[in-house]
Design a protein around this nucleic acid. Structure first.
Lengths: 208, 208
DNA sequence: ACCTGAACACCGTTCAAGT
DNA sequence: ACCTGAACACCGTTCAAGT
């Protein structure tokens, strides 16, 4: 049975979910597929392209048109779907963020934001900028949220059973405030900030 | 003359500015300092820590209290200073963004945002969330802006003299719109969105 | 068309031993 | 205290040669 492009992608996603982005190497992927490293290069020209395809798969479906008819709900729904898609895979946010920078993933999520902002009544140009701001916020927040969660998970496993006296020392320390409150609440707050900003923009347009 | 921690940091910054983050390896750094790779590990426990120190240096001074007395100008000034600091070094935004995720840089820039948001009249908790939203936006925008600029620079050098017939084909294509307009204008737009969002929050607090 | 074998040119990090 | 020499355990990528 021959290896197909989709099998390589599936294998890569499996390693990502189980071991994380740091352990996703072409050599590990090859051996998990029972193949020599060089074989992968028949299906993907290089690792970057493979990562781009993975990012596309992670975001698949997140850009479908919203069912809400009010523009603010539509933006919120999109943002939540986007965040959900990133959180559904280990290191998903980091992977997508880094492939966005190298422009090797499609920009359908951004396009969906732009389209919704345009539907709200913004000009094409403003909608585009709004789409970028939303994208950057969602990506930035989720990368942060996910790495924080993974650090906490690691910390819980590391120093909880190891030394009881240190267990409650640092983590609950300086910046505990609401940073380890519900991340969904934190996400919602910044999202509302941006949506309110759009509303203000629409209002000032209407009066001018 | 012995190598000091500061010399290692200086050498690393020099390589960053001249060759970029991808070419900043411990081995290249060592040879540029006329020393064996192992020597670096007397001054820094590992590469991550060195990158964290570089991020701190890049952000140095960007968090000084604003001179503006209105809270919105203060936020804007801070955001612009932050962006400027990131753009002042090759791959500066990417470096800071990735060290932020691994929590190996100080969070003075974020703290400055939080303090200003608190001065605006938000509760500590809301100010904290606002600080994060601002930080994520600035970081996300600037990473994008910088990588875009570097791609364009590379593209101009690459396919302008190489093949005249392809020169104007793809780059000026689909998403030209205002994405290659003044990046400072693009930055300003999203920033205003967030500031207007904060204003709306303050207003709804006042009336409730 | 698809893969193996084997190499090329690298990495970050460690650590005995030197001065 | 600070560094060398030399190794360990890896990387991504290429490419002739096989089937």
């Amino acid at each position: 049975m021959q290896l197909r492009r989709g099998d390589v992608l599936d294998g890569a996603m499996a390693i990502l979910d189980e071991y994380g982005l740091g352990d996703l190497t072409m050599r590990k992927l090859a051996s998990s597929l029972g193949v020599q490293p060089g074989a992968l290069y028949w299906h993907f020209p290089n690792k970057q392209t493979l990562l781009g395809a993975m990012a596309d798969r992670i975001l698949d479906g997140a850009d479908e048109p919203s069912t809400s008819e009010s523009w603010d709900d539509a933006i919120a729904e999109l943002a939540h779907r986007f965040r959900g898609a990133l959180l559904a895979h280990r290191d998903g946010a980091e992977l997508v963020a880094s492939t966005y920078a190298s422009r090797l993933t499609t920009s359908r999520a951004r396009d969906a934001f732009v389209a919704t902002a345009e539907r709200a009544g913004l000009s094409r140009a403003y909608a585009e900028l709004t789409g970028y701001a939303l994208l950057h916020y969602v990506l930035g927040h989720t990368v942060d949220e996910q790495s924080r969660a993974q650090l906490a998970e690691l910390g819980a496993l590391t120093h909880a059973p190891l030394s009881p006296d240190v267990a409650t020392a640092q983590p609950a320390g300086a910046d505990a405030d609401l940073l380890d409150g519900d991340p969904a609440v934190r996400f919602e707050f910044g999202l509302r900030l941006l949506i309110d900003g759009v509303r203000a923009r629409l209002a000032s347009r209407a009066t001018s």
